[in-house]
Design a protein around this nucleic acid. Sequence first.
DNA 1: CAGAATCCTTTAGGATACTG
DNA 2: CAGTATCCTAAAGGATTCTG
Lengths: 120, 120
Amino acid sequence: MAASARQGPYICGIDAAMDVVTGKWKSLILWELHEHGTRRFAELRRGLPGVSEKMLVQHLREMEEDGLVHREVYPVVPPKVEYSLTEHGITLNTALESLAVWGQERIQRIGAEKTATDAA
Amino acid sequence: MAASARQGPYICGIDAAMDVVTGKWKSLILWELHEHGTRRFAELRRGLPGVSEKMLVQHLREMEEDGLVHREVYPVVPPKVEYSLTEHGITLNTALESLAVWGQERIQRIGAEKTATDAA
DNA sequence: CAGAATCCTTTAGGATACTG
DNA sequence: CAGTATCCTAAAGGATTCTG
């Protein structure tokens, strides 16, 4: 079952996908793990400036339950835990690509508007 | 400027896109308008079972400010207001398609898991 | 190092009543 | 019809402290 507490059934696919991506840092975590392949807890923290430990753990746990992230614990001391994307995490990232492109274009637009406004 | 109160700059494209889609009913509103081309306020309400007037107005206003939705007011009585997608709203919808497909597959997976569990 | 636990603030969302 | 306005609850997120 999914971790992201969900009451009723999904209305459509976007609904089901959003449910898994919603969370202030989730898409960024997805991106970080996609970029680096595998990351330790502290590395992720540093890669996500501003994230609190609580939210990072919480999001990672939910994403693990949702089958997006794999958590590998090494029984050593000091503790070592490595996170990586599962197959589903990878395909989700791919599915997010066109959205990322749209977002980039939006950033350009906003920047342009801002520049135009500033120039006025 | 965007309506979705946003403090700092965006970290990446997904970030910028999510900012505009986040909101319990926004992706559904996008879908409704895409399906019907144009909808009146009351029609949207009926198309989104469970939405409150407050949230519907609020989301529509934000989406209008974000340049996704066009609001056409007809100066008649009783009032008539029609909502439709702008160019950016349409392209956003397109960008969301692969995500919708991923979500559909996820629904299938969950259904399958559930069935397997129930069978056990 | 990788977290668990606790407390607190902020934001999202909902219910209801009213209006031009 | 298409909203406003007000009040309230719930959920998300953050800061801090502690631990195996």
